[in-house]
C-alpha cells in the first residue's frame, strides 16, 4: 500500500546549462513530519524545493503537490513559503504585508494572530524597509504561516536571527508540527536539524545519498572524534594508521577515526603533555560532512 504523502518528487532531473542540479531524485513529504534537507552548497536542495513549488519544471520525472501539479493554485493554497532571499515590498508596514499575503488564502489568520504567533506584534506598524535583518526574517515567517498551511517550505529560516528569536521560531515550528502541519526545512545549522527534524535527507550532486531519522543517520557512520590540546604536528599524526582526518582549530586538535583506542594510546605515548582529552561519537555535523565527502569522492 502506498504511503500517503503531501508532496513528492519522482525520478526528477533538472539541469541548468552544464550543471546537473537534480539527478533522478525521489523525495516525499509525509503528513505531520518535519523533513530537513541537508547538503553542501550546490547539492540541489533549493532546486528540489523550487520543483515542489512549481518555480522550476523538471526535465524528466514528476513533481506533485497535494496530488496536483505544483502549478495548480489549488495545490499552492495548502502551502506556506519562506524563501532565503526574497525582499518584501519595502514601503509597506508589517501588518499590511501579512494582510496582503493572507488575502491569497481561503481561511487565513487575522494579521494580529499571525503576529502573535511569531512574536512580531511590536513590529505591526513598522515600515518593512526599516526593520533589522533578523526582524525581517520573523516577518517572513509570519507571512509563511498566515494562511494556515498544511505544508510549510522554509529555506534557511533562522539565518540572521539572534539566539532568543531562533528558539522562539523553533518553538513555533514544533507547535506547527504537533498540530498536524508538515514542514520542509533546508538549513546550514546542523543543530537545527538535530533539534527539529523527524527525518533528514542528505543531498549531494542532486542525488539523495542518505535519509532517515537523526539517530539513524548517526548510526550510518561509526566514526568517533578525539579532541585534545597537543603540540604534535598534523603531518606527523596523518602518518599514523587508522586516522581518517586530522585538523586543528582554536579549540585544539581533532582526530577522526573508526577505531580510536590504539590512537589514544599512541597519542599519550608520543606527547606526555596532552590535555583536555575527549572522545565522542560523531554528531550530525560530522556525519553529514562525511557522507557528502564520500559522495563527492
Amino acid at each position: 500500500m502506498k504511503r500517503e504523502c503531501l508532496a513528492e518528487l519522482s525520478g526528477v532531473s533538472k539541469r541548468f546549462g552544464k550543471v546537473q542540479a537534480v539527478d533522478g531524485l525521489d523525495l516525499e513529504v509525509r503528513p505531520g513530519e518535519l523533513l530537513a534537507l541537508l547538503g553542501q552548497n550546490g547539492a540541489g536542495k533549493s532546486t528540489a524545493i523550487a520543483l515542489l513549488l512549481g518555480l522550476e519544471r523538471p526535465d524528466s520525472g514528476s513533481a506533485v503537490l497535494f496530488g496536483l501539479s505544483p502549478l495548480d493554485i489549488e495545490a499552492r493554497r495548502g502551502i506556506g513559503v519562506m524563501m532565503q532571499e526574497a525582499a518584501l515590498v519595502p514601503e509597506l508596514r508589517v501588518r499590511e504585508q501579512i494582510e496582503l499575503v493572507a488575502s491569497y488564502y481561503p481561511d487565513p489568520m487575522a494579521p494580529g494572530e499571525a503576529m502573535q504567533l511569531t512574536h512580531t506584534e511590536s513590529l505591526a506598524e513598522r515600515i518593512y524597509a526599516k526593520l533589522s535583518p533578523g526582524q525581517k526574517r520573523q516577518v517572513q515567517f509570519a507571512l509563511a504561516i498566515c494562511g494556515r498551511p498544511k505544508l510549510l517550505f522554509l529555506d534557511e529560516p533562522t539565518v540572521g536571527l539572534d539566539i532568543q528569536s531562533r528558539e522562539l521560531m523553533w518553538s513555533s515550528l514544533r507547535r506547527l508540527v504537533s498540530e498536524g502541519a508538515s514542514i520542509v526545512l533546508t538549513t546550514h545549522y546542523i543543530e537545527e536539524a538535530e533539534a527539529l527534524a523527524d527525518r533528514v535527507v542528505v543531498l549531494a550532486k542532486g542525488r539523495e545519498i542518505a535519509s532517515g531519522t537523526v539517530s539513524e543517520m548517526r548510526a550510518l557512520v561509526v566514526r568517533k572524534q578525539i579532541s585534545c590540546s597537543s603540540t604534535l604536528s598534523l603531518d606527523q599524526i596523518r602518518t599514523w594508521p587508522d586516522v581518517d582526518s586530522v585538523r586543528r582549530d582554536h579549540k585544539g586538535l581533532h582526530i577522526t577515526a573508526a577505531k580510536v583506542e590504539d590512537l589514544v594510546r599512541r597519542l599519550l605515548a608520543e606527547d606526555e603533555d596532552v590535555e583536555d582529552l575527549e572522545i565522542h561519537r560523531a554528531g550530525l555535523a560530522e556525519t553529514f560532512t562525511e557522507l557528502t565527502q564520500e559522495s563527492v569522492q
Binding site: 502573535q116 504561516i145 494556515r148 513555533s172 498540530e179
Partner: peptide, 12 residues
Amino acid sequence: AASATTLSSELN
C-alpha cells in the same frame, strides 16, 4: 489566545 489559535488547516 495564542495557544487557542489553530496554526494549520489540517485540523480544519
